[in-house]
Simulated scan of single mutants.
Amino acid sequence: MLQFLTSLFKPKPAEAPPITSETSMNFDGEEVGPFLNRLADNPRFALPRDFAAAISEALPELALDETRRWRIDGDFDGVAMRLEIQIYMDDINAPDLSFHSSAEVVAEIDQALKQLDG
């Protein structure tokens, strides 16, 4: 009974802002894991430790013209965020990655993509 009463007064976790923006880039297959690891190491993000490995390990299983999407919940600048990563295999070992989230999150990812493409 006490546990029920205390659960009534627990603050609800903050909801992530809605997904409003997108950025994308074509990758060589071997670039996906290192890019996602650099994203995870970005101090503005707090992402699950295993998300980059899970996505990288799924790449060889994707057939040509297949699409797969992952939903990742984490923080951006200390605020809850939701990131969706979609991979479309438009060429053999050359996936197209698109990143969907709030405008601020996508802007940070877009900067990282520009550095990679630079």
Rank of each mutant, 00 (worst) to 15 (best):
F35R: 01
Q111I: 08
I109M: 02
E104K: 07
D65N: 14
D75T: 12
R49F: 09
T20G: 03
Q86I: 02
D90N: 14
E22T: 11
P34T: 07
P43Q: 07
G78C: 05
R69I: 15
K10E: 15
P48C: 09
P17Y: 03
N26G: 12
A107D: 15
N42T: 07
E30N: 10
D73S: 11
M25N: 04
I72A: 04
R82A: 15
L62T: 02
L62C: 09
D28W: 11
A94P: 00
D50Y: 05
A112M: 15
G29W: 00
E30D: 12
R71C: 07
A94S: 13
D91K: 12
P13I: 14
L97C: 09
E30P: 03
R44P: 00
K114V: 02
F27H: 03
S7C: 08
Q115V: 10
E104M: 08
P48K: 05
S24L: 11
G29N: 08
P43W: 01
L116M: 15
L59H: 03
D117W: 12
V105Y: 00
A14I: 08
R44G: 09
K12W: 06
Q111S: 15
I19F: 05
A103Y: 05
E15Q: 14
G29C: 01
V105Q: 04
D41Q: 13
Y88E: 12
A103F: 11
F4C: 06
T20P: 01
S7I: 01
D90E: 14
F27S: 05
E30T: 11
S101R: 02
T20I: 06
Y88N: 11
P18R: 02
P17M: 04
M81P: 01
V32S: 07
M89Q: 13
A107R: 13
A63D: 14
E108Q: 14
S98K: 05
N37S: 07
A54D: 15
D110P: 04
P95R: 04
K10W: 07
D73L: 08
V106Q: 00
F45R: 01
A63Q: 14
L5Y: 12
L97S: 01
D91C: 04
M25K: 10
A52Q: 01
G29S: 13
G78S: 06
A58M: 12
Q111G: 09
I92H: 14
L36N: 00
M1A: 14
D75F: 13
D65M: 10
I109V: 12
N93K: 15
F27G: 04
A53L: 12
D117S: 15
A14R: 12
